[in-house]
Design a protein around this nucleic acid. Structure first.
Lengths: 244, 244
DNA sequence: CGTCCTCTTGACGGCTTTCAATAAAAGTGG
DNA sequence: CCACTTTTATTGAAAGCCGTCAAGAGGACG
């Protein structure tokens, strides 16, 4: 990932022209590294920057008045993070590094040029955003209508599906650096109950665990249990404008 | 709303040029009306159409394997519906008319021309999509971390905030044509418990109810109870490209 | 005016949370 | 590399919120 991460991501779904690639590379000229645990941005900060993750994991979260926390999304390499800055002046959520992270930051004004010069990229980013919305909708169904076990299972399946987009080698086993409390904050559960559900998944022979790694043993069965659909494997790119 | 609904919606946040207005109007040339209860599209249909609602309410929902239903979003006049078609070939959710509805349908290929000829519109739609994502994220926090009463309250507050975008006259009272079962399918609750929570909100003097109308009595207090933030009042349009 | 849908209410049960305590692991400083 | 501290994982018991089941009332619609 020495070149452009976002270009690499897009090329999993369509072929870019050289002009497009170099336009995208401009978004990632400004690179930064932070340590695990670093709060990169706080809710209500007036930061207008967007990020593209080059390596490591991050997550966004909101804090509620009663002190509880909801992790709104995990972010993986190749993800564009903080796009809500395009709609609002203040950050709508906080952004935290889950592992050591390298990322590129750019101001949203840079997207203006991209939208003017590269309508196909703009349209592709729009399609991406819609796919992400569908993924959020899936999570709403998960939180609203499925059991605790299914929610934890859905999180693991979603993680492995998303990691596979950028890592074609990845099969069933992957590093999973979330604490059980963090898993609870993603799935809307308590850490205690996450613990019980993880053990239940192990007892059901759906997953295995070893030092912060997860292995999914029976993905089809687990997908059925979790009511999970992979939204990242394909994208419809037929309607996109011609490249420039 | 004889002209373009989506243009009217956008003009609440920015001023359009005549060229932009007429480009948007082209999306709404093909108008249809359906009766309350009509299923306009089913999950997994190969429909690639997008919709713009001109009058009436709709909702999108998914069905889970166990037969339960999750309503993923309510749709109001001025909303662009079915944008997930931009990312996928098959519909990711079903679309139902909640009241009698007039809407315009257009194929996603029409967006191609819009993205090429009107980068500012493209960018504005992108910003809109991000605002919707934030609204979905708010709902995830609501479902994951708040009580049943708070979820119902949040739904009512979200409804009134969204209706106000297109109806500046609207104050605290509005028609709310959802059954309690449908409210449950939005909030992840059972109809029985929705009933109890609605009465609790009435007893708390936060709302009044009368023949399918809701009046919000104490909006600030209810917003605090529900942990609700209005995401529709403003949009940052400073970064957008110049109009054409 | 009968049927179906929706709203309402009560009793009971279960899934998840809360509280509490211990063990294991990871991080820190000497 | 070893004590020490802090975080994380694990387990049990009890409580609570919300779901399930059931039954009746009220309204809409044909």
């Amino acid at each position: 990932m020495s070149g452009s991460c976002i270009a690499e991501r897009l090329e999993h779904y369509l072929s870019l022209t050289d002009r497009e690639r170099s336009a995208l590379a401009r978004l990632e000229e400004n690179e930064r590294s932070v340590r695990r645990g670093t709060i990169v941005r706080r809710e209500n900060d007036r930061g207008t920057d967007l990020l593209i993750i080059k390596s490591g994991w991050m997550f966004s979260h909101v804090l509620l008045d009663d002190g509880s926390r909801q992790i709104s999304r995990l972010h993986f390499p190749g993800d564009m993070v903080g796009a809500s800055a395009l709609a609002f002046l203040k950050a709508t959520d906080s952004l935290v590094a889950l592992t050591d992270v390298r990322f590129a930051g750019f101001d949203k004004s840079m997207l203006r040029d991209l939208f003017e010069a590269h309508p196909r990229i703009a349209a592709a980013l729009f399609a991406f955003a819609q796919a992400e919305s569908v993924a959020l909708t899936d999570r709403i169904a998960s939180l609203g209508r499925t059991s605790a076990k299914a929610r934890v299972a859905a999180l693991l399946l979603d993680t492995v599906s998303r990691l596979r987009v950028m890592d074609k080698q990845l099969r069933n086993r992957f590093a999973f650096p979330l604490t059980q409390e963090e898993i609870g904050d993603v799935t809307g559960l308590t850490a205690v109950h996450v613990n019980r559900m993880m053990r239940a998944l192990v007892e059901d022979r759906l997953i295995r665990r070893s030092n912060s790694h997860i292995e999914v043993i029976d993905e089809p069965k687990m997908s059925r249990l979790a009511n999970y659909t992979d939204r990242y494997a394909e994208l419809d790119t037929n309607w996109l404008p011609a490249p420039r």
